[in-house]
Design a protein around this nucleic acid. Structure first.
Lengths: 260, 260
DNA sequence: CGTTTAATTGAAAGCAGTCAAACTATGTGG
DNA sequence: CCACATAGTTTGACTGCTTTCAATTAAACG
């Protein structure tokens, strides 16, 4: 199932989160011309204003999307984990309305807009997979609007932690383990509409409440269910069922840790 | 150009904001079975948890999307104006992750999911129009995240007013006129992550600053350019160019009003 | 190891929220 | 056409969550 012969197999696998591809579709994907590029942490994959000319798959590492206000403050609007399709967002629009930047050193698979676009146009299923991917992204955006607009700082931070944990889990990364959140507190703040100072305070509160354990940027969630409740996190907005396949145990990751 | 023979002509027109349809595509759309329904203000078009079974076009009136937190607070995540395609969002996902509700008495054109889905699958251009529509919606979501996360209350309110004005304008509704914002201050608050009381105060501030004029829910924007600057509004995120056709004067609507 | 970047902590200020009451529309029935 | 009821708007006083400003400590990097 895990075909590692070609990086394009990862692309096929990512699309198969949304549809069941025919062998023909699969072959067509494997036949696409591609390129794998390593990006440093902080490198830009797309800059606001760029004409989108490629579509990408995040193979390793993390990335984020962000926009800037006229006053220069930043708002991160999405976080991406390995396995995410990166630029369907901008691919078909006239120009990029936001930035995509690496959160960590990352390997990115890119396919030219023309090649991918042609395939998506000719193979209906693949086009549909792209549409579903965009719809799920849109659902995540809606939850972020709710999170930032209507939850207090503690709930907001906890919710983002839950989302990232759930998505890593979904992508098959080791569940039930510590995981590394490759974000500075300043980046967390920009993702949550808070200040870095307050994020720091809230993290401490969550830690004091026993909801999370921290060691540098390693985070462990010893009481997933509690954290989930505290943050009002309900993973349905991630539409993993759509994502047929990955069948994580319904209610909960089981973390082994107890106390520091 | 403005074909009023069938409500489906409105649907075709809305899709043509994103692509140039062939006569064949157009005919196929006009041939779809449809239904026009009137909804009262406050009526639900879609409820969270519903299986999506229809796709809709808002013909007259306004609508909004919202989600609720576990604590019961509401966050409005999008506003829709006449001419908007309403439920591509949920159409292809397993179930609706949010609610769609009428802001005013509205006429809605609906097409069954199966009929529309089949057409979108067979006619690549129509499918592509749907994709573009969803991408533009996603871009608007991103701007809302930025707006709520990084602008103060005054900027936030002003930005939303600008967005709605720009979108009404885009849909060909009388520009440069007063327009009626069919939202209560409580709804505005829920769209902006604020409280109704504070929205009220901010509206007064904007009025005192001469940026808006109000009479009940009629709003006039006598100094568009000033309001635009005050709210850091840049309409590029609405991707109207994508929306080939409607060529509003680039930089600014010209409102005639001066002072009350 | 020194230098830079990120994380912490404290004290003070401020923007927005909460609570409560008064006022204004809008709508209904007599 | 007026009286009452309901929904929405406005205003004031007070509270508090989050920000700001500043300084210190810890971690990451070449």
């Amino acid at each position: 199932m895990l075909d590692t012969t070609s990086p394009m197999a990862r692309m096929a696998k990512s699309l198969e989160k949304y549809v069941v591809l025919s062998p023909g579709d699969r072959d067509a994907i494997l036949a696409l011309p591609f390129k794998v590029t390593s990006y440093e942490s902080g490198a830009y994959l797309v800059r606001e204003g760029d004409r989108a000319d490629k579509c990408a798959l995040l193979m390793t590492g993390f990335a984020f999307r962000h926009k800037l206000t006229g006053a220069g403050t930043r708002q991160i609007v999405a976080i991406h984990v390995p396995g995410d399709l990166l630029d369907m967002q901008n691919l078909f629009l006239d120009y990029a309305d936001h930035n995509v930047q690496m959160l960590s050193r990352s390997d990115v698979l890119t396919v030219s807009r023309s090649a991918f676009g042609a395939l998506a146009k000719s193979a209906a299923l693949i086009g549909h997979a792209v549409l579903l991917g965009v719809l799920v992204d849109a659902s995540v955006y809606r939850e972020w609007i709710l999170n930032i607009g209507r939850r207090d700082a503690r709930g907001r931070v906890a919710h983002l932690i839950c989302e990232i944990a759930a998505r890593l889990d979904m992508e098959g990364l080791p569940p039930g383990q510590d995981y590394e959140l490759p974000m500075t507190q300043e980046q967390l703040a920009d993702a949550l509409g808070l200040t870095p100072v307050h994020v720091n305070r809230v993290l401490r509160i969550l830690e004091d409440d026993g909801l999370i354990l921290r060691k540098s940027r390693q985070i462990r969630l010893p009481h997933w269910e509690q954290l989930r409740r505290a943050s009002d996190f309900d993973d349905r907005y991630l539409h993993q069922a759509q994502t047929k396949g990955i069948s994580t145990a319904e209610g909960g990751l089981e973390w082994s840790g107890t106390e520091a």
